[in-house]
Design a protein around this nucleic acid. Structure first.
Length: 752
DNA sequence: CAGCCTCGAGTTCC
DNA sequence: CTCGAGGCTG
């Protein structure tokens, strides 16, 4: 098939065949690289194929194909599926594992709504184990189908969804003009077994479980393949709507059913918590005979107006919860315990297991959490598993928490080998040999090597290029490992990434000829790095990987200071106060340790006073400004201060920042009149609870504070307001009543 | 000061 | 996805 003759030796027919072969070969390589993230040829080979394609086209211009690979420039755009931004975010659900969690949930809802013992109904429906899908209908016609993705952005699988018999292509008259229907795509047990038999008969891959089969079938580039797979669908929710479906969850499901969507027949309305739990028991009892996989029961507040008042937290709604069935368990042998070193130096023990199937997936690794967990102690020091420890060679019980993360749950002492010794958790870093210490009250042991430790250094770099940070295309975890180990063109700290191209240019052998790179891929990498030089302050901060500064805290700090210069200047000024704060903490700890010894206590206090007293007023004020900032407390503040004050670390950061153009945080451009304002609520609110008022205000971009200060913009005072109202008056801050507040934010109350 | 909620950091397999 | 812990609220 393959034609290796020099281009000049090809006749027209051979050239035509070779162009077809190259087009197919390159398209396959593009998919493997970009969609599956699993390159099947090296970049050099890829470049060579492209070069040959171009050479043949140059000699036989008339034969150039309409789908010529030459027309696809650089990083091919051949992504498997187009990305789709969901008009309304697809949320995930909070989980409950025990009846007590469900009772808690119902109580939380009551408290939040201020319902007392009044009536409150929930729907209960089986939680289908498939993959969620959002179907968009415009003017009654299915126009788009998208997978959940990360909840914000999913994949466009419209042609595939059209092949699913349960999904209507058109809606009857009376359906809203715009309607996004959400539900679960799944495969029945019978269809799954038949499909696997068919696959096996043809020598093709079989699927581990119905969910994987459903996911694999829906995410086919060729919708004809999807059409040949027996997929089904249950509708259970909705996204964007031009008109409300009903006043209740159950009513809305009824409407969806009238529109032609299958809804689950086991769905029931439960007037009490007891009814919810009874429904759970009934569904669990029928689980095996349903004919499809379910992994729990979902409860939702039935009244949609109440759902709206409850609103959503960062990723989950307050008005629903998933009551999961007990996880499937499996027994296997613990072959070894490895200890990994994370970016913060945390030593994490990982169980290497004899492979075993748990819940349809073969598991060979599982987390062991920390040294206490192995020893049979919980976080509070109390025995877990009846105090049984875990030893290499033991028979252990494994389950997948949340059906995902494998964990070792238990151990069978009766089968323990006679020579099994208790696991000795290392007190030195397994990678760099530095002492590994456990701070008092901390559950994890950490390597103290800092950036000396290659494990920490490389994990920090991986974090630096990760999604929420610099997110450099073509520079992922694998590439970081490679460059970290490379002698000729190393990346050992973040700044090295941005000097990569210049250093490469000075090398005798270029990247384009090494490490599996070709001219195209090397150029693409340098371009992606160049693009990453312009970086928002929040991403820079997060990328630095400073302990306790995650995505949210980084954004908070960035917004607080506005620029890198302002941030570093402020932190440098605050440093003496930070040190004093640490000294005070340590003195206090010493004091506690020497409880009873009056003399020592006095000495500790003296140390603290001394540490606090010498601090310049300016430093104390700057420190105070930091610790009182939104989302920042003493722990976060101290961690940030330490990172910037450490000479080695600071030098590395300065080298990095010199390579960058740091962009200021975006001002929150909200249309709401209260965006960016600080509001304080006091007194009794009559039309909403305090929690609700706060959530609503924050949703509109306002900050809700607990006490009135000069920075407060509005005080919302209900009946019974006391000192806060007087404070506001004294400070000349506008005071609104509840009606005035609702008028200001424009609406009767909680709006969509 | 206690409990709640959210965030951070850890992990697996596809 | 879960656990632990930091920060905020009542």
């Amino acid at each position: 098939m393959q034609d290796d003759r020099p281009v000049d030796d090809l006749d027209e027919a051979a050239a035509r065949a070779e162009l077809a072969r190259l087009a197919e070969r390159l398209a396959r390589a593009d998919l493997a690289y970009h969609r599956d993230d699993a390159p099947e040829i090296t970049d050099a080979e890829y470049d060579a194929l492209k070069a040959r394609n171009r050479a043949i086209e140059a000699r036989f211009p008339a034969l150039k194909r309409t789908d010529s690979p030459s027309d696809k420039v650089g990083a091919p755009l051949a992504e498997g599926f187009a990305k789709v931004r969901h008009a309304v975010r697809m949320l995930s659900l909070e989980n409950a594992f025990e009846p007590a969690d469900v009772i808690d949930f119902a109580q939380r809802v009551r408290r939040y709504l201020g319902l007392g013992d009044g009536p409150l109904a929930f729907t209960a429906e089986p939680k289908i184990d498939g993959l969620s899908l959002s179907l968009r209908y415009e003017a009654g016609v299915l126009t788009q189908a998208a997978t959940r993705g990360d909840g914000e952005v999913g994949e466009n699988v419209t042609p595939n969804a059209r092949t699913v018999a349960d999904i209507p292509h058109r809606l009857p008259a009376g359906a809203p003009d715009l309607l996004e229907v959400r539900g679960e795509v799944y495969m029945s047990h019978a269809d799954f077994a038949a499909l696997n038999a068919r696959q096996a008969g043809r020598g093709e891959r079989t699927f581990a479980n119905p969910r994987n089969a459903a996911a694999g079938s829906l995410r086919q580039l060729d919708a004809a393949v999807t059409a040949s797979r027996p997929l089904r669908f249950f509708a259970y929710a909705w996204g964007a709507l031009s008109a409300p479906l009903a006043a209740t969850q159950s009513g809305a499901l009824e409407r969806l059913s009238q529109f032609g969507f299958p809804t689950n027949p086991l769905t029931a309305l439960c007037p009490t918590t007891e009814a919810m739990l009874a429904r759970y028991a009934a569904i669990e009892r029928d689980r095996a005979s349903l004919g499809y996989d379910i992994d729990g029961v979902v409860y939702k507040v039935d009244d949609l107006a109440l759902q709206q008042r409850l609103g959503v937290r960062s990723a989950t709604p307050r008005w629903a919860i998933a009551h999961k069935f007990a996880a499937e368990l499996a027994w296997t042998r613990l072959a070894a315990i490895d200890v990994q070193v994370g970016r913060t130096g945390a030593l994490s023990p990982v169980a290497r297991l004899d492979p075993v199937t748990v819940g349809g997936v073969v598991v060979s690794n599982a987390t062991l959490h920390n040294e206490d967990y192995i020893a049979g102690r919980g976080a509070d020091g109390r025995p877990i598993r009846g105090g049984r420890d875990i030893r290499v060679g033991d028979r252990v019980q494994v389950f997948r928490a949340g059906d995902v993360i494998p964990k070792v749950a238990d151990v069978d002492l009766s089968l323990r080998p006679g020579d099994a010794a208790p696991f000795a958790f290392p007190d030195r870093c397994p990678r760099c040999g530095s002492p590994a210490v456990r701070e008092p009250g901390d559950a994890v042991r950490r390597c103290t090597g800092g950036l000396i430790c290659p494990a920490q250094a490389v994990e920090k770099l991986k974090h630096f290029v990760s999604r929420g940070a610099f997110d450099i295309e073509g520079l992922g975890a694998r590439q970081i490992e490679m460059f970290f180990a490379d002698e000729l063109l190393p990346i050992r700290e973040p700044a090295d990434i941005f000097t990569l191209e210049a250093r490469d240019a000075a090398n005798p052998v270029r990247l384009a000829d090494r490490l599996g790179y070709g001219a195209v891929s090397a150029r693409n990498l340098f371009a992606a790095i160049a693009a990453a030089r312009r970086v928002p302050l929040a991403r820079l901060l997060f990328g630095l990987g400073i302990r306790h500064l995650g995505e949210v805290a980084s954004a908070d700090v960035a917004r607080h200071y506005g620029s890198w210069e302002a941030l570093t200047a402020a932190l440098d000024r605050a440093r003496p106060a930070a040190l004093a704060h640490r000294a005070a903490d340590e003195a206090e700890a010493a004091e506690r340790a020497a409880a009873g010894a009056e003399g020592r206590r006095a000495r500790a206090r003296a140390v603290r006073d001394a540490a606090t007293m010498g601090v310049p007023v300016e430093a104390a004020e700057e420190w105070r400004d930091l610790v009182t900032a939104d989302g920042v407390g003493p722990v976060v503040a101290l961690s940030l201060s330490d990172a910037l004050a450490n000479p080695r670390e600071r030098a590395s950061i300065d080298r990095l920042v010199a390579e960058l153009r740091v962009l200021p945080p975006e001002a929150r451009a909200e249309a709401s009149p209260v965006a960016g304002r600080t509001v304080v609520f006091t007194g009794t609110l009559e039309r909403m609870t305090r929690a609700e008022a706060k959530a609503r205000a924050e949703q509109l971009g306002a900050k809700v504070a607990g006490s009135v200060s000069a920075r407060t913009d509005y005080l919302v005072a209900g009946p019974g307001a006391g000192s806060k109202a007087r404070d506001a008056e004294r400070l000349g801050i506008p005071v609104l009543d509840e009606a005035g507040w609702l008028a200001l934010i424009g609406g009767e109350g909680p709006a969509p």
